[in-house]
Design a protein around this nucleic acid. Structure first.
Length: 112
DNA sequence: TCTATGACTCCGG
DNA sequence: CCCGGAGCCATAG
């Protein structure tokens, strides 16, 4: 057990923020990373999401890249599961890209 | 220890 | 907005 303080915290932070994403809304990795104070570690947020498979309450499908593209849909179980989940929340997704992103985008820095 | 990789983002053209 | 290149940083092998 060395010092699990920082790492564990980072992952947990990401999970908590992901859980805080409102229904029918989406955000970007960079936004979460920035909110956590690791704006330059957007990739790490994605990595945390990858590990989120251990957590069932993590709506990773609400997290997309800055373009609103479902870059991580490939990591979901189903081929189009991510899109299905988003559409289920009333989010229109075309060609792996979220439509009307401006309205659906949820910025933790701005909302929290 | 070092290298490669990636669910990203920013910058210049 | 699209394209190519560079930066960043934790994890895996």
């Amino acid at each position: 057990m060395k010092d699990n303080s920082r790492d564990q915290n980072f992952f947990d932070r990401v999970y908590e923020v992901a859980k805080l994403i409102p229904y029918g809304r989406v955000t970007s990795y960079g936004a979460i990373a920035k909110y956590l104070g690791a704006a330059r570690s957007a990739r790490m947020v994605g990595w945390a999401m990858n590990a989120s498979g251990k957590q069932e309450d993590i709506p990773a499908h609400r997290v997309v890249n800055r373009k609103g593209v479902l870059t991580g849909k490939h990591h979901f179980q189903g081929t189009n599961l991510m899109q299905q989940l988003l559409e289920n929340e009333g989010i229109e997704v075309i060609d792996n890209q979220i439509q009307d992103l401006d309205t659906l985008f949820w910025d933790p820095m701005k909302e929290l």
